[in-house]
């Protein structure tokens, strides 16, 4: 796991993040090492407050680690000045948040085209790409709606479309279903499965078992450290009929 393979998209070595000093010192993330392969969907699960979100922020360069390194597509993120990090974020990363974080006064379509505009795409190109992405997440008919006119599940799908706007190397999702009800979660699961099938690399932090179950690999985190890793891909389950109680 410590060896960086050629297909590795993201590689974190010995990541640590501490807040405060002395007695108030909080070790949010402790010596986390993680490799994510291209096309892999990795879920990090654990109780709330275990440092999952901080880890995601470190991986996305939104916070600087106290120690350790993060390499995204081969470039060392933790040492870069923020301007360069921003360029990397723009090109290689897509973020999805629990609170959606859509811009209130922009329509769904305008929200989705925002990253492309920030990356310097032509307005026409950005619009075309945004329309395509909205259609992919099944919201072509909601393009001109404001976020306030969309349901939670629809807002999160817009946010996912936005995360994909620049065809990122990696999508980082922080509790994407945290604010959603069960049926909206199902919509989102479908989208996650589609993403996965298309080969999008995703790291998702969650305590929703259903999202975790879509992963190829599941990492359990407790008190800021990784405690267990389970490979779900290729695993065999009991037949469905047995789970349903049809078989003895």
């Amino acid at each position: 796991m410590t060896v960086e393979s050629e297909t590795s998209v993201l590689s974190a070595q010995g990541l640590c993040k501490e807040y405060g000093k002395g007695a108030a010192l909080v070790r949010a993330v402790q010596a986390v090492t993680l490799e994510v392969e291209r096309g892999e969907l990795v879920a990090v699960v654990g109780p709330s407050g275990c440092g999952k979100s901080t880890l995601l922020h470190l991986l996305g360069g939104l916070e600087r680690p106290t120690a350790g390194s993060v390499r995204l597509g081969g470039s060392a993120l933790e040492r870069m000045p923020e301007a360069q990090q921003a360029r990397i974020r723009r090109r290689d990363l897509g973020f999805v948040f629990q609170a959606f974080h859509l811009v209130d006064e922009l329509t769904a379509l305008e929200n989705v085209e925002l990253p492309a505009l920030l990356a310097g795409a032509s307005p026409r190109g950005a619009r075309a790409r945004a329309s395509e992405l909205l259609a992919q997440v099944g919201l072509a008919d909601r393009a001109s709606h404001l976020p306030s006119a969309l349901s939670g599940g629809q807002q999160q799908r817009v946010a996912i479309a936005r995360a994909l706007a620049n065809e990122p190397l990696l999508v980082l999702a922080d509790e994407p279903t945290g604010n959603l009800d069960s049926s909206a979660t199902t919509e989102l699961l479908r989208l996650f499965e589609q993403l996965h099938a298309r080969g999008q690399t995703v790291v998702v932090v969650t305590h929703d078992e259903r999202i975790a179950a879509t992963a190829d690999r599941l990492i359990s985190m407790r008190d800021g450290a990784f405690v267990d890793e389970t490979k779900l891909a290729g695993g065999t389950a009991r037949p469905l009929s047995a789970m349903a109680g049809l078989e003895a």
Partner: peptide
């Protein structure tokens, strides 16, 4: 016991994954 739990969880998650895919 924690290892047992982790193993069991993996098992259940694989099942969940299958069931979920079928449901979707």
């Amino acid at each position: 016991p924690v290892r047992l739990i982790d193993k069991q969880r993996g098992e259940l998650l694989v099942g969940l994954r299958e069931a979920q895919r079928a449901a979707l």
